[in-house]
Amino acid sequence: MAVAPYATPVEKAWYYTFRVICGLIFFFLIMPILVIIPLGFNPVPFFTYPMEGFSWRWYGEIFGDSPISILWQRSMVNSVVVAICATLLATILGTLAALGLTRADFPGKPAVMAILISPIMVPIVVIAVGMFYFYAQVGLVSTLSGIILAHTTLGVPFVVITVSATLQGFDHNLVRAGAILGANPVRVFRKVTLPIITPGVVSGSLFAFAASWDEIVVVLFLASTEQHTVPRRMWSGIRELLSPTIIAAATMLIIISILLMFTMEWLRRRSERMRGLTPS
């Protein structure tokens, strides 16, 4: 899109106005995230600019050895354990299911697909309340396993969607080519199928990881203090007294999000290049 040489002054004015409007919308999207990061380094517990200096004080509250710090650190361990376990489970189950979904048609396939996808669509509070009610009866409330199972559920649709999409784009002639070139089925799978679908599986698992890493509502219902994750700790903090420690924790979450995002973009562009969508 560029201003055409024959554009009238009105068109030119509109062109620049449009750009400014878009700039403002992007500003709206990014500004809140960027503005709060420095506040975590404010030496005083206020959320105002200009800042009064620079300090690691609030990060110290998380990484120190006061009772509060211990809680924060435990919540980090919980978050990591839950996210990793849930991601692994979701990736394995979701990838297998995606393989099955693309392999053959069978009656009721759309319905099955709808069920596999529904955890993204059903309101999270309904899910959390249902799990709370049911898990209480089987002793899974206030256990890390309960939260891991719940987060697996929430992450699995992402894996199913991304891996199915990858498999649908997969050219089965490549498997034939591998075979006729003399590679046995195991070798074909290792050298051809796996490398091609891996980016899809990894993207799916990154989504699943992010879904677990950010999740708060289910944890709100299923976890007692022992199982608190980082978002759950933040929640308590926000509800009690909004302190810059929360901002420090939020900043760390943002950094992880950025890492996830760049990995994801890198994977996406790599696979697009591979398919020749964006010749370089």
């Binding site: 999207l29 990014i30 959320f47 909004l242 939020a250 995002m261």
Partner: peptide, 16 residues
């Protein structure tokens, strides 16, 4: 970037 940033973080940001 906002898409990948935690919902709680973004809500917190607006609160602040």
């Amino acid at each position: 970037l906002p898409f990948w940033t935690s919902l709680l973080v973004r809500t917190t940001a607006w609160l602040v």
